[in-house]
Design a protein around this nucleic acid. Sequence first.
DNA 1: GGCCTGGGGCAGCACAGTTA
DNA 2: TAACTGTGCTGCCCCAGGCC
Length: 330
Amino acid sequence: MREVADRAGVALSSVSRVLSGHPDVSDVMRHRVLDAVAALGYEPDMLAQSLRTGATMTVGFVVGDISNPLLAQIGQGAETRLSEAGYSLQLANSMNDAHLDARHVRLFRQRRVDGLLLSLAAEDHDETLTSLASAQTPSVLVDRNSTLAPEASSVLSDHAFGMSEAVTHLFELGHHRIALVNGNPHVRPAKERARVLRRLSRGRADVAALVRQGSFTPEHGEAASMDALSQDDPPTAIIAGGNQILTGVLRAVRSAGLRIPDDISVITCDDVPLAEFLEPPIATISRDPREMGRVAAELLLDLIAGGEPREVVLPTGFRATKSCGRPARD
DNA sequence: GGCCTGGGGCAGCACAGTTA
DNA sequence: TAACTGTGCTGCCCCAGGCC
């Protein structure tokens, strides 16, 4: 930077002003500095910038499972907005392990990130909550219970609406035994989906709701579905509580020799890549993950700028298809 | 004389390494 | 062990010059 200043014949601080876009810079000065920058191939040292400003212009994103396309799309939505604001996004994969959540939060704190996006593997894990509280870094929870981290903003999905629409649709078709192959019971999406199914089934003697908790993985989806289908009175409809879980559900359905929708109806939560090519296409409780990421980034930028924590709830919807039919037996 | 704009000078940021 | 140094950069303060 000093060499740039010498070559342009200006002071060090003038180079800084030109490069940081300060308004009080003449065109002549700007051209002289930029010419010198180009001639010398100068690039600013971001470590030094961070040293002076106390900001690293980076945001950490802790995700439970980096292989989940849903989280990839959320990350894409967030990255696009953060990039517009000059921030870069760093990703940490917790592999659905709450201890890794806490470790990543600490690591990001040590790296002095300016903010955190959190799609935690467990939202009530003491170690993670302690790390968050001590980090004092602006944070946004992505579809996680916000009451446990009151200083954080949160962007939530209205799971209740989409789930309610889906279950009502199954009731209308005549289904009375419905299995929810659910994901991790320590996070909000799984809690909400189970809560809605139980609420809608409560007080109806003719309805049996079966909830299988586990993890957001194909393995759990397959094992839990096989278990449900092997019962004496198996379900006539299965709701896969996540796009990864759906893969396992479909494996189990195929292993059991069942046809969709003749023998069993299937609904999935969240869109699945290539789902449009399934025959029949799978009915979906859908949401817009890119929008979720964008809103999360917006909330985080607001917190970094000194704003107050806020909560934003985004809509879900239900898309019925021929994967749901009338039950063959009752 | 007062205001505005452009630009220079300098303290200080965190911390590892060096020196006394 | 304590004090100092060096790193690249920015934000604040201040000054010079032009204009009304």
